[in-house]
Design a protein around this nucleic acid. Structure first.
Length: 280
DNA sequence: CTCCAGGTTCCGG
DNA sequence: CCGGAACATGGA
């Protein structure tokens, strides 16, 4: 095994951050994880709080793991209600990863009506077939395929990756991005609402996927994706049962109640609900 | 077998 | 603005 560099002992749970349905390609490797950060093969490991990374991946890892996010302030900003505080205890140390924009947009286009395990399967298939191949410690690692690469495929190629009806959307979106008709660097410079609107021009990107992309790929930490799990939590814990709750009502509630780090709050609620709902 | 999954889009009230 | 239905695939 090649030499590792220490990134110190940041306030971080590496496992939670890599295994909470934000990114879908990290693979267990011994005591740690192996995967790609953009075009860099990276090995990560956390032992007794100390974070280790292959030296070539150190800079990328520091950025990707968002070690500069003020995690204590994020935690302190959450509302004090019991549901939120329970999720916080369950997820403390989880960070919102700073992922490449296209990777976030594309993987969440493929996520609709799919379980996390299957999103991961799709991600691995796409990477292996169409992503840049790298290597670390004798292990193959694949980058997420660039839009220009996907853009020249046929729909059947993507259907063969088990994308189902999402194949058409991923292909069309890749073509729009590759042609520059939707420019993700322009999106990055827009304020949240305008950025969301621009992302929704991509086929297969509605409000939920756009919010995932904003949160995971554009560092908009207030973006609050509402999926089936979050909606379940909200209806059970934040709204009176028996009352009809419209999506518009949910949207306006989430936009303010969870505060400036609403995206973090959402991710903690999501992960906690998904792993504990209906158990014990 | 049935049910459901980090939804989007289109269509009729 | 709202609720329904179609859309693919595989894990539970």
């Amino acid at each position: 095994m090649a030499k590792l560099a220490s990134l110190g002992t940041p306030s971080l749970s590496l496992d939670l951050s890599l295994q909470s349905g934000q990114a879908f390609h990290w693979v267990r490797e011994g005591e740690g994880w192996i995967g790609a950060i953009g075009g860099q093969a990276v090995y990560l490991e956390q032992r007794a709080g100390e974070l280790w990374v292959n030296s070539e991946g150190a800079a990328a890892a520091r950025d990707y793991l968002a070690l500069d996010h003020p995690l204590e302030a994020v935690h302190a900003s959450f509302p004090q209600d019991p549901t939120m505080q329970e999720a916080l205890r369950f997820c403390a140390g989880m960070r919102i990863l700073r992922q490449p924009a296209w990777e976030a947009v594309a993987t969440f286009i493929t996520s609709s009506m799919k379980q996390v395990a299957h999103i991961a399967q799709i991600s691995h298939t796409l990477r292996r077939l169409y992503g840049e191949r790298m290597e670390w410690g004798g292990r193959e690692v694949f980058a997420y395929p660039k839009p220009e690469v996907l853009a020249v495929l046929e729909e059947a190629d993507l259907r063969a990756c088990a994308l189902g009806y999402r194949a058409k959307n991923l292909l069309a979106s890749a073509r729009l991005v590759a042609r520059g008709e939707v420019d993700l660097e322009v999106v990055r410079a827009l304020p949240d609402d305008a950025a969301r609107e621009e992302l929704c021009r991509l086929p297969g990107v509605g409000e939920k996927v756009a919010n995932c992309a904003l949160l995971f790929g554009f560092e908009r930490l207030q973006a609050f994706p509402v999926d089936v799990w979050i909606e379940r939590v909200l209806r059970e814990r934040y709204f009176q049962k028996k009352r009809k709750v419209t999506s518009a009502r949910i949207r306006s509630f989430c936009a303010t109640y969870f505060g400036p780090y609403g995206g973090y709050a959402q991710q903690y609620l999501f992960h906690h609900a998904r792993l504990t709902w209906g158990k014990k």
